[in-house]
């Protein structure tokens, strides 16, 4: 059973507040880049290098990892930092919560009911769609400079104009696509 919107909303709001009170606003999607950087750096040692001229002390031949004084490059070199550990802990918290509520049913683990009602129960279709969607979502998040957490929740909470622009784009595309694809409720 999920929490009511009232209880859940207040709890979620309390977590956003705790984050900004104690450290900084919540964000997730940057850590996909940091993870990619860590893997890339394992394959090619020259992806992140120490640099005395860079503001962060690290530089990269990749323009994205090198931007903002090499701050992403530094986080790739030192993954035990707040933002990366935050995301790992987030996953652990969700896993523990799921176990405590009895876990996710085997059928549901492959796809949600609403997908099954509209596209049938062949799991490869769902997996392929999820894979492609993941690609588009993370490309878009990085282009936007944040995702649902960083832009929509943390951004609008701080009255950031960028957060409202992001939310407008996300819902302007997301609502029509969902209405077209998912006509049956499941």
């Amino acid at each position: 059973m999920v929490l009511s919107w009232k209880t859940g909303g207040v709890l979620l709001g309390a977590v956003f507040f705790a984050a900004v009170l104690l450290v900084k606003p919540i964000g997730v999607s940057t850590q996909f880049v940091i993870f990619d950087g860590i893997v890339w750096d394992l394959i090619d040692q020259d992806v992140v290098v120490k640099s005395e001229t860079a503001k962060s002390g690290y530089a990269s031949p990749n323009a994205y990892l090198d931007k903002s004084g090499g701050s992403y490059a530094k986080n790739v070199a030192h993954p035990l930092n707040y933002s990366f550990v935050f995301v790992l802990a987030m996953m652990a918290g969700a896993a523990i919560s799921a176990v405590m509520r009895g876990g996710v049913a085997p059928d549901e683990r492959q796809m949600p009911e609403v997908w099954r009602a509209n596209f049938g129960d062949e799991s490869w279709k769902r997996y392929m769609a999820a894979f492609l969607a993941g690609f588009v979502v993370l490309y878009g998040s990085r282009l936007a400079g944040g995702c649902t957490s960083g832009h929509m929740m943390s951004g609008m909470m701080q009255t950031a104009v960028s957060g409202f622009i992001f939310a407008a784009g996300a819902f302007a595309a997301g609502i029509p696509v969902a209405m077209l694809l998912f006509k049956k409720e499941g």
Binding site: G140, R142, F166, A170, A173
Partner: peptide
């Protein structure tokens, strides 16, 4: 980027 996220979302 928000629109791209919206489609995949």
């Amino acid at each position: 980027g928000g629109m791209l996220l919206g489609v995949g979302f």
